[in-house]
Design a protein around this nucleic acid. Structure first.
Lengths: 118, 118
DNA sequence: TCGACATACCTTGAACTGAAAGGTATTATG
DNA sequence: CATAATACCTTTCAGTTCAAGGTATGTCGA
């Protein structure tokens, strides 16, 4: 892996960020996550299952999540929760996200460059 | 174009957003834009020329930008500025961006779901 | 003067996301 | 009994972006 000259691929990984955040608060399963994201953002953000499941698998493979199968209401579900490594990963991503949005926000709302504060 | 079920491809188009914003404030040329973004975000955001030039061409093709060639300091440059259509496009993208980041921010900082305010 | 660096334009290739659509199976509901 | 909802999953495709390159001119120091 070469050092990156520019960005950590911009806003990529937003689904991962949101998933980690949800699971940090509460054990959840894939299907539930899809709806949770849709509900809690008033459908402003909506990721499909085709996005969520691969992310869950990848995060578990990386040791950021652990899973256990449970049957609730006669439904077999795979519940995921965050490991310590996952918590660190979430903290890192949150910070990156904050830096990025702050920088962009400044460009969007700021005065034209070079204007001194009088 | 089918109606989109989920998102307008998440955070894609951030370079476009920043470029439109810069050009709305001030006529600029490609090479200058690359450095302006890097400078004004303290290198938090850095897009390469390989990103900027294609975006400029596409935006001009769409009528969101117009260009003129000028020679300044013996340097031949292509200056871009925003058209009315480009201004509308910027306004739309800014709003989308605001909605998205607001929703995500709420998920990142908010309390676990369902918690009533007592 | 000559080489290196900065300016300024541009394109191509590979890599990576994420969106969409599909596929399976079980359970509830009308 | 058929349909919808739940719940898991994969594959394919399109779109961005990154990195790396390529051209040409101007400037500046050794």
């Amino acid at each position: 892996m070469a050092t990156r000259e520019t960005n950590p691929n911009f806003m990529n990984g937003v689904p991962e960020l949101l998933i980690l955040r949800l699971l940090e608060q509460e054990e959840m399963y894939g299907y539930e996550i899809v709806q949770a994201i849709r509900d809690r953002t008033d459908a402003v953000v909506a990721v499909g299952e085709g996005v969520v499941y691969p992310v869950l698998h990848a995060l578990e493979h990386d040791g950021a999540l652990r899973s256990r199968r449970r049957t609730v209401n006669k439904r077999s579900r795979i519940y995921y929760s965050v490991t310590p490594a996952g918590a660190r990963r979430l903290a890192d991503m949150s910070e990156t996200w904050a830096n990025l949005t702050t920088a962009i926000q400044k460009m969007l709302t700021g005065e034209p460059y070079g204007e001194a504060i009088l």
